[in-house]
Design a protein around this nucleic acid. Structure first.
Lengths: 228, 228
DNA sequence: TTTTTGATTTTTGTATACAATAATTAGGTG
DNA sequence: CACCTAATTATTGTATACAAAAATCAAAAA
């Protein structure tokens, strides 16, 4: 019945604007709402089954997160995705990952590193069986785990926001499979450096890793721009 | 000839929720609304002369910026200011400044550095005449100039958001004057490194500078917590 | 045809009305 | 008195109503 569904979907006390923000965020990240698309309030309220008030509050939150652009008196649209912005975002993420790596070497507990290694092996399994989706998901998870090991909530929150921007590219343009092998090797090196608590090496590895990601993502965006 | 307003990103037309967000942001940063204070919608609407709709949209934006905390069904309150959060924030700002310094060494135009040096001397003048407010303001400006020299809009935006958090401490607890002299020296070194386009040195100097700031701000917060 | 201009429609921004939840107070009970 | 409990009040969350701006369309003029 209805109450059960509600309880499953919203275990904690939540408001409509929060759930709306979550739904919209997911739609934007997954590309259901494509970059630059106008957000028509009437359409979205019908789609989400709520009124304009919580919807507008949600779009304002997403605007502050950088997923939505506000046009005064002309509503809102999904933030555009261009190579320049993604490059800037990845540069910042690189700086944040470097900090995260440094702090993780200090604060990470052994069981966290063990858990990270386990996830890494699961990702290897995904790689072996060619499960791109699961591989991508666990890849994300590994990076988030490292960031969270830094034990800095501000850092974690910021990183996730920026990461959402990059995830959009993944869903927009399927990233090439050829990068897999090098990425796997990089992850193994990263794991080794963290286990050895070698902060400087970890920072360097993370920087390289992200630089590679930048080239891949840029190419993906550029080819998408060329075909579209 | 037609006005190409569309091409410009900066929207000149303003809505009430934006101005409300600006007002609230300023009140929070300046401490007019003190940390942890409940945001009563009736009071604020009367104070700002608008209705609850744009006010609530504003508070949601500020929540995403981290200046406000939302309590479901219990409204909102000004985000608390504790040493732990400020430490985390400054750590992240440090990472961002390091990136900014690196990029600034590459992208900064000579006239920008000239402008920076001019602001530095004006700050020296503030120091000489003991104008703490103006000194503080120009100090902020110098750091923002360096960040903006990186030519990375994502970085600039993020840095400003985090900086707002730290500014709150300044207004909450007047920072000690004794740090002035060391800060002046550090700024001169930073300026020299940037002029020489010495990225590594600049990064190190900025890191030191921020580490000092962290101790000062922590002490200020701790003493404030002790007296309050 | 193309352009322009003014009316019509749509969409957004804001205010207010209503509903639901939380806070407060008053009155009883041990 | 302390401690419940219920009624009242206040406050928040959501829906809707209204106003203003933008977009659309259609007829007239170049």
């Amino acid at each position: 019945m209805q109450n059960d569904i509600e309880a499953l979907e919203a275990p904690l006390a939540r408001t409509l604007n929060e759930t709306a923000a979550e739904k919209l965020r997911e739609m934007i990240v997954h590309g259901t709402l494509s970059p630059g698309a106008r957000l028509n309030e009437r359409e979205l309220t019908e789609m989400l089954g709520l009124s304009r008030t919580p919807l507008r509050e949600a779009t304002r939150m997403l605007a502050s997160e950088g997923l939505v652009e506000l046009l005064p008196n002309r509503g809102a649209r999904v933030a555009a995705l261009n190579v320049s912005t993604i490059r800037q975002t990845l540069q910042v993420m690189g700086a944040l990952e470097a900090l995260a790596g440094e702090l993780a070497c200090i604060h990470a507990r052994d069981e966290q590193i063990t858990e990270l290694r386990a996830t890494h092996f699961e990702m290897l399994a995904d790689h072996a069986r060619g499960d791109l989706d699961s591989y991508f998901h666990r890849n994300q998870r590994i990076h988030l785990m490292i960031v969270d090991m830094a034990d800095n909530a501000v850092l974690s929150q910021l990183y996730r926001n920026l990461n959402d921007q990059v995830r959009r590219v993944r869903y927009m343009a399927n990233l090439s499979r050829q990068r897999w092998d090098t990425a796997i090797q990089e992850h193994e090196d990263i794991l080794a450096a963290l286990s050895a608590r070698d902060a400087e090496k970890l920072k360097a590895l993370l920087a390289d890793h992200l630089a590679h990601k930048l080239t891949v993502v840029s190419q993906a965006l550029a080819s998408k721009a060329a075909e579209g």
